[in-house]
Amino acid sequence: MLGEGIIQGLFETARNFFGSYVEKDRLTTVQYPEERHQLPEASRNFPFLLYDGPDPDAGLRCVSCQICEKECPPRCIHIEKSKDKKPDFVGKQQFYPAVFNIDVSVCMSCQICVEVCPFDAIRMDKVFELSTSDRFGGLLWDKHELSKSNEYYRQIHPMEAAECDERRAKELAEAQAKAAAAAAKAAQAAPTSPAAAPAATNGSGNGASAPAKSGAAHSAPETKVAQ
């Protein structure tokens, strides 16, 4: 019968229309600013830098190795290495970034910087309401704008953060055991001199500034600064 197909289609539309009042999976509209979707744990937007403890400068995990700068596909990261060193969370002397800029207008949220970072220093954020009236300066984030605490990281990516904390706690324990063994050996060899064992840190990174080996093991590969 001519028109049968049209009627069948209209029947489908009507079923959807009335169904939308009763069926749960048809109610899909969210009243955005008042009502919000819960973002999944894996959700990502733009990178941020992690720091331990209360002080963003002292606790910054980044050692300025410049791997992320080199690997970033759109090359939106710019790092300048410091001249001096500061101790990292196990007490080892490391460089830190004097300048760390990310141009988020260029960043394409691919997460490759997070994947390649060997120091768990860079992670992906979830914030997305970032509109600004300043097109260039407002979207060029420096070290202070990028720094976020470990507590914040635990909030936004709880599972990932727990795994990361556990790994770092293990590393710290190993470093402490090594330091203790070295101290015991030194004490045996020269019983008269005071033992210069590095003090154990609590993972907040701003503890030990005891004499330690230079960070040669994590020395940065030579990279060109893309300009």
Binding site: A42, M108, S109, Q111
Partner: peptide
């Protein structure tokens, strides 16, 4: 609209898997 309603659910799955809805990488 019907197509996008279902597509939305699939994109939500992609987001919880890979972190992004369309640019999954």
């Amino acid at each position: 609209m019907y197509a996008f309603r279902e597509r939305e659910k699939i994109l939500d799955l992609f987001e919880s898997l890979s972190g992004a809805r369309m640019m999954c990488n």
